[in-house]
Each structure stands twice: as structure tokens, then as C-alpha cells.
Amino acid sequence: MTITRTTLWLLLLPGVGYLVLFFGLPLVLALLTSLGMGTIGTNEGFTLRHYADLFSDSVYRDGIRYSLYISVAPTLASLAVALPLAVVLQATFPGKKLFLTLYKVPLVVPGIVAAFIVMILFDRGGEMSRILKPVGLSLPKLVRDDWSLGVIIALAWKSIPFMTLIIGGALASIPADLAAAARSLGANRRVVFWQIELPMALPGITAAVLLVFVGSTGAFAVPSLLGPIYPKPLSVWMYEAAYQQNDWGLATAMGIVMSAIACAVLLIYYRLTHGLNRAIGGETR
């Protein structure tokens, strides 16, 4: 049976059509708006003014840098916890069932609630400092601090179960025979993990890292509540530009820059893991 051009297009229509309509079209509209040819706000004809504003103003440059920081740092922090946790959860231990239920709780807690939890626990005069005060210990500043530790804690707290779930799934799908075969060939548990299990779970780990990264890039509520007064992330500046200054051109330019940064990070990450895979696992073809 040969598929004619028309049938092919018809078959592709539901999938591709959906993407074009709900992803491509808004993206194009945002791009046009940021170039001054928008349908929202004033139409002023083609201009690069908004991008020039964005990159010439040090406030926005700091915003870009800060947005990148609060998406990379929580992703790395989550990975540092989720990967060992996923490995531990492959084994059986008493109380595992209860733990498996409990550790997923942050998945269903909204980001803003997570931010308030961190605030109540870790802010100056919060629960933790009250508990620690009689012992003579004091917490470092964790809310509205220069390093945004509170933001990182809240975002990581949200994404650790999600990452653990994905990486755990990737690890669990590796047949047990592979580890047994490697052990019989003289590999200890550590070597089996680094040379067999990790390379095989890498696609899952990659997916988890990218999803968490993209999720954190656009975080709004958590940095607004827990972040320092300055710098603010691009997401917050975007909101202010659009709703307080009614400058949709600038807001969409920020959106486009943020998307471009996310794409660039994804590309770099793909290159890195590709190289990593080759280095520790052997050929990838």
C-alpha cells in the first residue's frame, strides 16, 4: 500500500496541527509582539528596541543571570538528592511502602504552599530557629538571602520526588541479570552502578533533569516570596512589564530570551551527557 501525499498530511494533522495551534502560533505571536509587530499592545512596526532595552539595562541583565541561577541550582540540588535516593529505593527495606507514599507528598503540594512552608520553618523567628535557640544554635539567613537558599530549598523540595520517580523508573527497568552478570565478571556494587546502571539510566536522568530545569526557569511564586529584594528573576520582571507598565513588547522579549536560554541549556546538556555516556559507558550509536 502506498500512502499518498494527501493521506499523509491528514494522518499528521492531529499531532502536528495541535502543536502548531497551541505551541507554534503563540510562540510566533510572542515573537512578533517582541519585535513591535504585535497584536497585543501597540503596533509600532518592526523594531529591535525591546531587545535593546532588555540587554542595555543592568537590572534586566541581572534578572537573566538570576533566572538562570535559580533554575540550575535547584536542578543540581535535586539531582544530588534524587539520584542516591532512587538507588536506595531499588532495595527492599522495612517500612519501604510507607516511605514510598510519604516521599511523594511534595508532588501534590503547590509551589506557593511549598514557599510558605519554607518561610514558616526557616525565616528569622520561624519554627526552626525557635527549636534551635535553646540549644544555642542559630540558622543562617535562608529567606530573602543573597544566595537564595530558601528559593533553592523550596524548588528542590518540590522537584526531588518527581526526579526520584523518573530516575527510579529508569533504574528499575534495567534487568537484574545485567548486574548479576557484571558481578560474576568481577565488578563490585560500585562498578556495577557507575559502568552499567548509570549509563543505562542516563536517558531517564536526562529527562528528569531537563523537566525540572524547565520547570524552575519559569518559577514565579517561590522566588517572589523567598528570593532577595534584588535581583529579581525574569519571570517577575515580565509580570511587572506586562501588568504594571503595560509594556507587552518588553514582556514578550523577555519571554523569548528566556525560551532561548532554556533551549541553549538543553542543547549544552545534551552534548555533555552524550560525551559522558561515551566516556563511562562506551559507544553510543
Binding site: 534487568p175 541479570d177 545485567l178 548479576a180 552478570a181 557484571a182 558481578r183 560474576s184 565478571l185 568481577g186 565488578a187 563490585n188 552499567i196 549509563p199 543505562m200 555516556n277 559507558g281 562506551g282 559507544e283 553510543t284
Partner: peptide, 17 residues
């Protein structure tokens, strides 16, 4: 890993990567 015993499985268990 200390037993020095060769193992062959029904599933082959080759390292796919």
C-alpha cells in the same frame, strides 16, 4: 565478584551500551 565463576543467562544479559 570474588568467586571467579562464569555465568550465562537465558536472557543473554549482554551490556546493551
Amino acid at each position: 565478584e570474588r568467586r571467579h565463576v562464569g555465568l550465562v543467562f537465558q536472557s543473554y544479559a549482554l551490556f546493551p551500551h
